[in-house]
Design a protein around this nucleic acid. Sequence first.
DNA 1: CGAGAATTTGAAATTACTCAACTACAGTGG
DNA 2: CCACTGTAGTTGAGTAATTTCAAATTCTCG
Lengths: 232, 232
Amino acid sequence: MTPQLLALLKSNPLFQNLNDHALEQVAQAAHRLRKQDGEFFFFQGDPAARVHFVIQGKVKLAQTTGDGQQVLMEYIGPGRVFSIIAMLPKARYPVSSQAVGESEVLYWPREAIVSLNEQYPTLSANMMQLMATQIGEFQNRIRELSTQRVERRIARVLMRLARQTGQRLPDGVLIDLAISRQDLAEMTGTTLFTVSRTLKRWETNGLIESRREHVIIRQPHSLVKIAEESED
Amino acid sequence: MTPQLLALLKSNPLFQNLNDHALEQVAQAAHRLRKQDGEFFFFQGDPAARVHFVIQGKVKLAQTTGDGQQVLMEYIGPGRVFSIIAMLPKARYPVSSQAVGESEVLYWPREAIVSLNEQYPTLSANMMQLMATQIGEFQNRIRELSTQRVERRIARVLMRLARQTGQRLPDGVLIDLAISRQDLAEMTGTTLFTVSRTLKRWETNGLIESRREHVIIRQPHSLVKIAEESED
DNA sequence: CGAGAATTTGAAATTACTCAACTACAGTGG
DNA sequence: CCACTGTAGTTGAGTAATTTCAAATTCTCG
């Protein structure tokens, strides 16, 4: 465990306010794992055995429906935790997790993370914090899917991606993540055709520039306006 | 705190595996609160200060959008916990909670529940369990909203309500909960008109019997078939 | 009975999906 | 360097699902 890694752990909400000894213990118990682009860390339905922490690259969490459709739950970047559910006995992963680009994670087997939680209430408080945040985000997403039209949902996803992985350019914000029309469709609950048409329209109006697998936001302000809930 | 109440607590997943002493402490710290039909325990946006536990009646959790639309997140019945988010410092309630029928709850102020969590790791493990379950349910709901048509979503909600509050009748299952078309619409992300038409169609085909604010499921099997994901 | 709320129903409008055909792009190997 | 191949993206036409709005109807409670 290198000092850089320790620092990365330390800066993560999950390990906030842990004393050095505790952090040491946490680091001790961690395993490292590296995957190539497109490889899976685990599949939906597998018994949930490990809690993961992204060091490098991105991980895509997606749920597949019975008839093969996909729903893209989220992208997890460096310094973020996923599959907390593995803390619980007998749980199964509700999503599959796939490396996007070469990716590296730390993970802890359930037994380890459970015993750490028992030793350090701070850790379990942090974990609850994260879970609560997650619940809040999902509630928002449910609300959006329930009440908002596709165009607005796409705008909101772009804003969110820009916030999470946005790179400032002289003339706009680049979403620094290879993302296809299909991906956007799976994130917003629509089809790639509708996404394509919508992005095209925005491009024509100068709001964005859309390249193959990439989007640059040229007029964030206009996009925000579409993303907001008010009608006018 | 009566023995019945203690028993109710004891039977709840949240308080599972707590020893008697711990349970005693939990009970000590609880406050009781009773509300009339339609009254609110708290409103969306209020600082989240209390964790609640339903003793009697039902509580409706709903989120209101900027433009006044509602999204009904869930109904909470006796023996269930809500607003766990209040464990966290500085959180705000993401939903409003309204009594459905005369209702009674126990609640714990944040300080109390936080200190109980620190004393009893079992309690915090249980709490995480509940939160994880919640996350899983929300993920399912997101998937449904993203990929399924209204008819199927309505069928699924009816099945769920039947499971949660269903009462066996000689000839079917009564959903024992005053529930309007509007409510169903808010639960499934559609309009009351579409709900009305859909229920009417099912009634015509003998799948259900629909009364004002009530639904009786006559042919659970057929409804399950509509609710399932396979196409055919 | 009467008032208000819940529900039904019809018709029109809209949104988004489906499917098929086409175009653009990136990487590969000759 | 270019043809080739596969993937990503675009576009049009037709269709299906769902919403919107207005109006009529039914139910419940006081």
